[in-house]
Amino acid sequence: MLVEVLLHTKIDKLGAEGDLVKVKSGYARNFLLPKRMATVATMASKRHIELLRKRRAEREAAEFQTAQELASRLQKLKLLFTLASGSEEQEKVFGAVTAQNVADRLKEEGLEIDRKKIHMDRPLKELRIYSLEVDIHPYVTAQLHVELVPPAEKAKGKETKTKGEARKRPASKKTKHSAASEAEASSSDTSV
Rank of each mutant, 00 (worst) to 15 (best):
L80S: 13
L106I: 00
L79R: 05
S87L: 10
A71R: 13
Q100M: 10
V40T: 11
T42E: 07
E126L: 13
A38F: 11
L106G: 03
E69I: 06
R55T: 08
A57F: 09
Q65H: 11
R55D: 09
Q65F: 12
M37L: 14
E112C: 00
D135E: 14
S72A: 14
S85R: 14
T42A: 04
K54S: 12
R115C: 06
R105D: 07
F94Y: 15
G110F: 07
R105W: 00
I129N: 11
A61Q: 10
K54L: 12
A38P: 00
R47L: 15
L124H: 04
L111A: 00
T82Q: 13
K116L: 08
G86I: 08
K35R: 15
H119I: 07
R53M: 11
H48F: 12
S87E: 15
T42Q: 09
E133M: 07
A38T: 06
A57G: 05
I113D: 01
A44M: 13
R53F: 10
M43H: 08
K76G: 01
K46H: 09
E91P: 01
D114N: 11
A38H: 02
H48K: 12
G86D: 12
I118C: 02
Y130W: 08
F94S: 08
E109S: 02
R36D: 14
S72I: 03
D114M: 03
L132Q: 01
S85P: 00
T42D: 11
A84V: 12
R73G: 05
E88L: 08
R73T: 03
V97E: 03
D104Y: 06
E109T: 02
L127T: 09
T82F: 14
R56L: 13
T82D: 04
I49N: 01
Q100V: 12
L79E: 09
L52R: 04
R55P: 03
R128I: 08
E112N: 11
L77C: 10
A57Y: 05
K125A: 10
K54V: 07
L51S: 12
I118A: 02
L111H: 04
K46V: 08
A41C: 10
R128A: 06
Q100F: 07
R36K: 15
Q100L: 14
A71D: 04
T98D: 05
Q100T: 05
F94V: 05
T66V: 14
E89L: 05
T39G: 05
V97N: 02
M120T: 15
L52S: 03
E126G: 00
I136H: 01
F94W: 04
Q68M: 07
L132K: 04
Q65T: 11
E89I: 09
A67F: 09
D135L: 09
K125N: 03
M120A: 09
R128M: 14
D135A: 10
N101K: 13
K125W: 01
